[in-house]
Amino acid sequence: MWLHASCLLEFDIPVDTPFLLMLRPRSGNQQWVGREQYVLTPSVSAVEFTDPFGNLCQRLVAPAGEFSIKTSFDIQVADVSDSAPGAYFIPVEQLPDETLPFLLPSRYCESDRFSQMASSLVEGVAPGYDQCAKIVNYIRETITYAPGEGQEIISACEVNEKTQAVCRDMAHLGIACCRALSIPARMVVGYLETLEPMDLHAWFEAYVGGRWYVFDPTQDNLQGGRVAIAYGRDAADVAIYTQFGTPVDLQQMQVSIEQIPAPVY
């Protein structure tokens, strides 16, 4: 399917402020960007680079006063994410080098503290995809998805003590449990066409059966087009914007995504 997505960020900047942004999708096996627009108001110079996870990042200094960032794009994605029950577990010594960072504990995914819990959750389950699915089902059954409720980022250990959480924090718990089983897992931030209420969304991917697969504890199924914007070890790596110095006020954030006919350029 083809989707049109957009994100508007409006700030009140007290003094000239450095920003690091992560708002551009990149084309790959799962998505293809057909057209894109990136508008800074007022216009300032920006420099783009690719971070260690392959994300397209922009650096700029926002001037004092009202400042806005508007991104929009047309993108082709699948209308449902792939699933693969029974996909096999890959021993660590056979994993591709690029997956290895996603086996280690990270700031918000303390996988070294979940070995016993993860093992008990998947007892009797075939190693690989089915273990990841079992973990997701546990999170979905024990923690209520509460969009908009969690402004402060919390770790997997903290999430595990709660009865409700936002998508980002539920992904942290899934990632930590998968890594505890020696399954590479990474966080993804992006858009989900069917999300209600509409906002940017977080889920995770696990590497089994020779590729990455989507897992989302907040959704009952994998229906709906997904657009990945950023990948990382946890939320610390995938912030859509980071500002440095004097705190700034985010006045407004608007996110939209809708299905469109195949464009003719």
Rank of each mutant, 00 (worst) to 15 (best):
D79I: 10
G54A: 04
V248E: 01
S72P: 10
V44Q: 07
Q259E: 12
F67A: 03
Y191C: 03
G232F: 15
V188K: 05
L104I: 00
L3S: 12
R186M: 12
I90N: 11
P263G: 04
N29H: 02
L20F: 04
A87T: 11
Q254R: 13
F244D: 00
S256M: 08
E193K: 04
P263A: 12
R24E: 09
V238R: 03
Y207K: 11
L192E: 06
F49E: 08
R26Y: 01
Y108S: 09
D216G: 05
N160Q: 05
P18F: 12
E93W: 04
G224C: 03
A235V: 10
R233P: 01
Q30I: 05
G224E: 14
Q259K: 14
S120W: 14
D97E: 05
M198L: 08
F53C: 01
I154K: 12
D169Q: 09
K134D: 04
A5E: 08
S155D: 13
I139T: 05
I13F: 02
A62Q: 00
V227N: 03
R107D: 13
C109K: 07
D234N: 06
L3K: 15
F244V: 10
A156C: 11
R113G: 06
V61R: 09
L23Y: 02
A180L: 02
N160I: 02
A235R: 05
T218I: 02
H201G: 02
L104T: 01
I13Y: 03
V227P: 02
A146C: 11
L23M: 01
S182R: 07
F244R: 01
